[in-house]
Simulated scan of single mutants.
Amino acid sequence: MEMRAVTKRYGQGGNTVTALDAVDARFAPGTFTAVMGPSGSGKSTLLHCAAGLDRVTAGEVLIDGVPIGGLNERALTRLRRKRVGFVFQAFNLIPALTAAQNVVLPLRLAGRRPRAGEVAAMLGEVGLAERAGHRPAELSGGQQQRVAIARALVTRPAVIFADEPTGALDARSGAEVLRLLRAAVDRHGQTIVMVTHDPVAAAHADRVLFLADGRVVDDLAGPVGAEKIAVHTARLEESAR
């Protein structure tokens, strides 16, 4: 997963806003990267552009070695379904479907039938084997996010993008979600890019990328402690004022 001189602008003329400014970033296979920065620094825009949810203004994004800028919408959607996983703060599970049905959905959309026991095994990995038949309303927030992680992992994507995955959870549930994301990297060689404002969450990553005004301003190789991350974050927020 790579971003080469990626620029993203919104608006036109005097109302143009540069959300990303010539960002270069490479996310090596089997690594866990946290993206941090002050409000308005470009974190969410980076994630959306890296995942192909937003088209870039300039530069190039490569997913699994494929430059996505020249793909039409159908080809881009097909690539995302097969090679990209998502975990959102709001879970984004389909209320009418059971946990198992939510997990199998990316496989169905990618045109692949699940192997025997594949979905059950995936739910087992996130500790929800006994909840396969439960709908989201019957699950706690932490359990719903674990279903979302299983859903993201089931296609074994090239990269998983996580947008504030612990933002709606209590500390205990959040810690369990972070443990599962870390395990996906360590056990399965999964690549994860996570946007977060929480230094404790970022401390689970191998690397922390800091943004300010749409640019990469610092890049800490880890493991990096939450205290050091908090200090860097405070400095960036102070300079942004």
Rank of each mutant, 00 (worst) to 15 (best):
L62T: 14
A120Y: 00
A110L: 01
R113G: 04
R112A: 11
R235E: 14
R182E: 14
G142A: 10
E60W: 08
A5N: 15
T45M: 03
R135G: 04
L209C: 11
L109P: 00
G133I: 00
S173C: 05
G111Y: 06
P95Y: 02
T196Y: 04
A58H: 13
D163C: 11
A51M: 09
T77E: 07
A25G: 08
V6I: 12
R81D: 01
R151H: 08
G124K: 01
R179M: 04
A132Q: 03
A110M: 01
R235K: 13
V126P: 04
T18G: 13
G141H: 07
L76Y: 10
E130N: 13
R182H: 15
P199K: 02
P114C: 03
T16M: 06
L71P: 11
A152I: 10
V66R: 13
I68T: 15
E60V: 09
A234R: 15
A148C: 12
I68W: 06
L211P: 05
A58Y: 02
R146F: 00
A34H: 05
F27T: 13
R151A: 12
V147T: 11
V154A: 14
M194V: 08
G42P: 04
A148E: 07
A120V: 00
P199E: 03
L79N: 08
T98P: 06
P114V: 00
T7W: 02
A137V: 10
R207F: 03
D206R: 06
E2Y: 06
V217A: 11
P29L: 04
S239G: 09
T166Q: 14
R131N: 10
A28G: 08
A230F: 00
R113F: 00
L76A: 12
L236T: 05
S39F: 01
L46C: 13
A202P: 06
L79E: 05
T98W: 08
T191P: 05
V208I: 10
R81K: 10
G65V: 08
L107G: 04
Q12I: 05
E227H: 10
A202K: 10
S173K: 12
T45E: 05
L209H: 04
N92S: 12
M194F: 08
G225P: 00
S140H: 10
K43M: 04
V185Q: 15
R187K: 15
A137T: 10
E227M: 01
G37W: 00
E60H: 13
V147L: 09
D24F: 03
S239L: 12
V56C: 14
A120R: 09
E60Q: 15
G111W: 06
L181W: 12
L97M: 14
Q143M: 08
M194N: 11
G141V: 02
A226T: 02
L97A: 11
V6M: 12
R113H: 01
V224N: 07
G189M: 02
P29Y: 05
